[in-house]
Nucleic acid binder design. Structure first.
Length: 873
DNA sequence: GCGGACTGCTTACCT
DNA sequence: ACAGGTAAGCAGTCCGCG
């Protein structure tokens, strides 16, 4: 199993550039099925998919009490369809070919609300017997018509929307009919919403609708983590999972029910040394030996089928794909296998759901918002993520896989399976709960939630609401055509519109600084100003010409006041539920289990809220709406500017601010409160005290400061000394100096501490001058973000170092971090492995030390040159 | 032929 | 591949320089 980044990359799909989103679903090649009873106990809906053989939507339900998986096939006659504005008679006369499509079923007339034209319209709906006949197949109805809508929505999602299904919620089958199981909501929580939204039936209704999704518990989902080892004749060469040429010699299984097992292949010439048994890392791991690989796989398939959820780390690209192809090679028939490979590189688990944690943890929004960037900045390997989240450090393997003894192999193999399982169990099953909650909010099956980015989740959530309201889902081009382009210019080249404001900070040391922060500024703006793709620049002339409908005076965009915007309502609701309900509950709840759960709820909500503005400025989002995005940032600029003016008015002293924050120097507490109230009153947005510094050092650069908070902790932002690529020696110097800085108790200490800092700086300077530093502390660690061959415009230093490395046979690819030092050799750089201390370019490192330290020294008004003497060498 | 001013590319950060 | 704004370093280009 590949664990290193470059190894992972080898299996990333290269050719699957699916430009067109097809409605095609995977072909169910497997004949394995679960029971389909006419009555079931309450069960959790874990997957919704399309079964090509049955030609129907298929729901997978997990009954966690009796530990059973059930299938439920659609029996309502639901069919794939598309919508067109061509009347049926015209279809019949002008587009007769539609009827000749083999999967054509029938036509009908429907009335839908067009959110762009903002009126009810009549459409023709054309049904097909299978998704491919709508679009994606050899001959499809979509391709025969000049205009169609909703023809690119994948069928299983369409099925979810039309039936109001919520993946992750509880359902039961009663006399063959699928029904949702009710959820008990405590009266005091319901009351919170009733008070919050008194008199606003739209919000109140939505609140009641959404509450059960958060109140329904997430039951323990039985799962098994899987990891395989493959024999390879060449060391450091990872076997190709598509070819599956070599033997699978071990499969590790770690179950949430306590299963600890390694299936091992007996190999000629390898003996089991009985003395070694005591060396098993976990003594209760059960080893099972097999004489044939076929039997080993047979046992594997049998074992996993006791679980509704299969968990892997990179199983889509490696483990499960390898197993699948290897099984075919060994004579298994496709129908016998519980795994199916899809065209877009997924390895699906037929009975339940396969969750590939490599994919899930690679989702940017999960990484940043749900896990607070804890594993950011490094490699996304099992070891790296496990070490960041679980604090388990890496165990090195000393020999090639093929040379390990049975016990060594079992230890190595089982450990990875166990780590994979741990990634789903730590913090009270945080990961599983998060996935289920994300599925509920987005109406997306667990399978897709764990594989698609946040824009797909938000798309699904919003599409679901369209269908619920009987709205037509517009095509992407319709939105752009109706809403037009932008009116502002970005400061950064190649960006589409203007963003946030950053206030120019004045360098200096400031005792007692209070920071005010707009509470989720952009979502609040979306709520407060009724911003939604359909309300912004709505088609009503009267609305367009009413100056009162222009939220930003110097922007030409107006916003509809007649109806509440869909996304405004959704974002507003989710934001309120997070702030007023689940953050509060998470704080007040006594039961630790329940407290943890509320925290997962508020973290899941955070993901959606934080991404809600960005998607409207992202071209890949199907409701991409630049005027909406630019209104949000413009209103943000207005909010912070007005707040600053008011602050000055009140005699407060703003010294810095960035986007949604305002730094106030030594404020009068009464005035501060006055400002907060004014903002709430006049701007209709919440602003709150975020943090307070005992002392703050502004370097004079934007996004760049260090401060000591009231609890004595250091808060460093943007300083070079904090960046990953800065050599450790410079980082240490900064850390040292900041520590000295933190000893400043009052303004009276400044001089004394300044002297101490000067001395320390000089020490570091001399250390570098005298090359009295270990080489690895001089290493610059910089990531390669694309294939080396793609650096055509220029050759940055880290790429030069990478090229030197490749001469020694070290392969470098995207995601790899290059360690290099600056040398006085011809290239100017060398990979740290190849360099000697006497080749170091001392001046360059003094320069590094200078820029790192100056960001602190500038605040203190000290010059680096003064300390070290302007010595040019 | 060389150095300074400049632009553009690249990475890592902030909100 | 949810957004834009900023710091910093280096590569490469242009231009002046009697």
């Amino acid at each position: 199993m590949p664990k290193d980044k470059d190894e992972l990359e080898q299996f990333e799909e290269q050719e699957e550039e699916e430009v067109e989103e097809s409605s095609e679903e995977y072909i169910q090649e497997s004949a394995i099925t679960a029971e389909t009873p006419t009555n079931t106990p309450p069960s959790i809906l874990i997957d919704v998919t399309y079964d090509g053989k049955a030609g129907k939507a298929l729901l997978k339900l997990y009954d966690f009490i009796n530990d059973r998986i059930y299938y439920w096939y659609d029996n309502t006659g639901h069919r794939p369809y598309l919508i067109t504005d061509i009347p049926p008679e015209e279809v019949a006369s002008k587009y007769r070919a539609v009827f000749r499509v083999k999967g054509f079923d029938h036509m009908d007339v429907v009335s839908k609300f067009d959110p762009l034209e903002m009126r009810q319209k009549t459409y023709t709906i054309i049904y097909a017997k299978d998704p491919l006949s709508i679009g994606g197949g050899r001959e499809s109805i979509r391709d025969l018509l000049p205009r169609s809508w909703e023809a690119r929505i994948k069928y299983h999602l369409s099925y979810i929307y039309d039936n109001g299904l919520i993946p992750g919620m509880f359902y039961r089958v009663e006399n063959g009919k699928l029904t949702r199981v009710g959820v008990e909501v405590p009266g005091d929580i319901r009351k919170l919403g009733e008070e919050l939204y008194a008199g606003d039936d739209e919000y109140l209704g939505a609140f009641r609708e959404w509450l059960p999704l958060f109140q329904a518990p997430v039951p323990p989902l039985k799962r098994v983590a899987v990891d395989i080892e493959v024999y390879t004749p060449q060391e450091n060469k990872i076997p190709n999972p598509r070819e599956a040429m070599y033997e699978i010699i071990a499969i590790g299984l770690a179950g949430s029910d306590g299963l600890k097992r390694v299936l091992l292949l007996r190999r000629p010439g390898m003996e089991m040394n009985p003395d070694e048994v005591g060396m098993l890392l976990s003594s209760d791991v059960e080893l099972m030996f097999f004489d044939s690989e076929r039997d080993l796989l047979k046992e594997f398939f049998k074992e996993i089928m006791a679980y509704p959820i299969l968990v892997t780390f990179n199983g889509d690209s490696f483990d499960l794909t390898y197993i699948y192809n290897r099984a075919l090679k060994l004579g298994f028939r496709k129908e016998e296998l519980p795994i199916v490979l899809t065209r877009d590189g997924e390895a699906r688990y037929v009975l339940g759901v396969h969750i590939d944690l490599y994919k899930f943890f690679s989702i940017r929004a999960v990484e940043v918002y749900a896990f607070g960037g804890k594993y950011s900045g490094g490699e996304k390997t099992l070891d790296a993520i496990a070490s960041a989240l679980l604090g388990i450090s890496k165990v090195e393997r000393e020999k090639p896989i093929g040379e390990l003894s049975y016990i060594e192999l079992a230890n190595y193999n089982f450990r990875d399976a166990l780590l994979t399982l741990y990634l789903t169990t730590f913090n009270n099953e945080l990961t599983m709960k998060l996935i289920v909650l994300l599925a509920r909010i987005s109406k997306t099956p667990l399978n897709d939630v764990s594989r698609y980015q946040v824009s797909a989740w938000i798309r699904n959530m919003v599409y679901f609401e369209h269908r619920r309201r009987g709205w037509l889902i517009p095509n992407k081009e319709d939105v752009i055509n109706a809403k037009g382009g932008v009116a502002t210019k970005a400061l950064i080249k190649n960006k589409k519109y203007a963003g946030a404001i950053v206030i120019e900070p004045v360098a200096g040391i400031y005792p007692s600084v209070y920071v005010l922060d707009f509470a989720s500024l952009y979502p609040s703006i979306i709520k407060r100003w009724n911003l939604s793709y359909e309300t912004v620049r709505c088609p009503d002339e009267k609305q367009a010409n009413d100056p009162g409908n222009k939220p930003v005076p110097n922007l030409p965009h107006w916003v509809c006041t007649n109806m509440r915007g869909l996304t405004s309502l959704l974002v507003g609701l989710l934001r309120d539920m997070r702030v007023y309900v689940y953050k509060r509950l998470a704080k007040s709840e006594k039961d630790p289990q329940q407290k943890d759960y509320y925290n997962v709820v508020q973290a899941a909500l955070k993901v959606f809220i934080n991404a809600s503005y960005g998607v409207f400025g992202a071209e890949i989002f199907p409701l991409y709406c630049p005027p909406l995005a630019e209104l949000v940032t413009a209103l943000g600029r207005l909010a912070i500017t007005k707040t600053i003016v008011k602050a000055l008015d009140l005699g407060l002293t703003p010294i810095y601010g960035d986007t949604d924050s305002l730094f106030l120097y030594n404020p009068d507490m009464g005035k501060l409160e006055e400002l907060v109230n004014w903002v709430k009153e006049e701007l209709g947005i919440d602003i709150e005290l975020d943090k307070a510094y005992r002392i703050l050092a502004l370097s004079g650069r934007k996004k760049n400061y260090a401060g000591i908070l009231q609890d004595g902790s250091v808060d460093m932002k943007g300083l070079v000394g904090k960046k990953r690529n800065t050599p450790d020696i410079a980082k240490e110097a900064v850390k040292d100096v900041v520590h000295l800085f933190s000893t400043i108790g009052g303004i009276g200490d400044v001089e004394k501490v300044t002297e101490a800092i000067k001395d320390r700086v000089k020490e570091y300077y001399l250390m570098i001058r005298n090359k009295d530093v270990p080489l690895d502390k001089l290493a610059i660690k910089m990531a390669v973000n694309k294939p080396i061959s793609d650096y055509t415009k220029n050759t940055p230093q880290h790429v030069k170092a990478a090229e030197l490395l490749s001469k020694y046979g070290v392969k470098v690819g995207p995601g790899d971090i290059i360690f290099f030092v600056k040398t006085s050799t011809k290239e100017g750089v060398k990979p740290v492995q190849l360099a000697r201390i006497d080749e170091i370019d001392v001046d360059k490192y003094v320069e590094y030390l200078r820029t790192s330290l100056e960001q602190i020294l500038d605040a203190l008004g000290i010059s680096f040159e003064n300390i070290v003497g302007s010595r040019l060498m």
